[in-house]
């Protein structure tokens, strides 16, 4: 096991991501952040806190999205469905998807499908904490990422939220 991001580095990375996200928006009112269940929730919550802290306590629009029913491997294995809390319309809005690790890209593919059922966003972007390059199975790339790493398919990358570390093993 190797530590990719220590607690201190993780805090700095989240801070940087949140500032990049603020910097890139002309108007936060037109942006809806969407954390992907289950592992995009923690990083999503942290980024929302960091954005609120940097913008004088203004919490951006934020919801959770479960992609279980849109997966392309349903016939191989069923996953537990978690709650979806997108209550506002995303019609004409800019949606920024948030997940912890971008690996094959299949989760994001499913999330893009699922988003369609809530309306037609003006634009969709992707923000991830860890970008595992060279393992993509679909043509999907992040717009914002905390750290980019080169990994082999047999390696695992995990964000340990209780210890606040990103590890690879």
């Amino acid at each position: 096991m190797q530590i990719l991001l220590s607690t201190e580095q993780l805090h700095l990375t989240i801070k940087r991501l949140s500032l990049q996200l603020i910097e890139n928006q002309a108007d936060m009112a037109d942006v809806v952040f969407v954390g992907i269940q289950p592992r995009g929730v923690q990083i999503g919550n942290r980024i929302m806190e960091a954005i609120a802290a940097s913008t004088g306590g203004n919490s951006p629009q934020y919801g959770l999205l479960d992609i279980t029913f849109y997966r392309d491997d349903i016939r191989e294995e069923l996953h537990e469905a978690k709650e979806t809390t997108i209550t506002q319309s995303i019609e004409g809005k800019k949606v920024i998807l948030i997940d912890d690790v971008l690996y094959t890209g299949r989760t994001i593919r499913a999330a893009l499908d699922a988003l369609q059922d809530f309306g037609r966003p003006q634009k969709v972007e992707l923000c991830v904490l860890v970008n595992r390059r060279f393992n993509r199975e679909l043509p999907i790339q992040p717009d914002y990422y905390g750290i980019a790493i080169d990994t082999k398919p047999n390696q695992k990358v995990k964000v340990e939220w209780d210890r606040e570390e990103v590890v690879i093993y």
């Binding site: 029913f69 849109y70 499908d113 699922a114 809530f118």
Partner: peptide, 8 residues
């Protein structure tokens, strides 16, 4: 949801 359908 506005579109009450999933592809499962």
């Amino acid at each position: 949801r506005p579109i009450k359908k999933v592809p499962s």
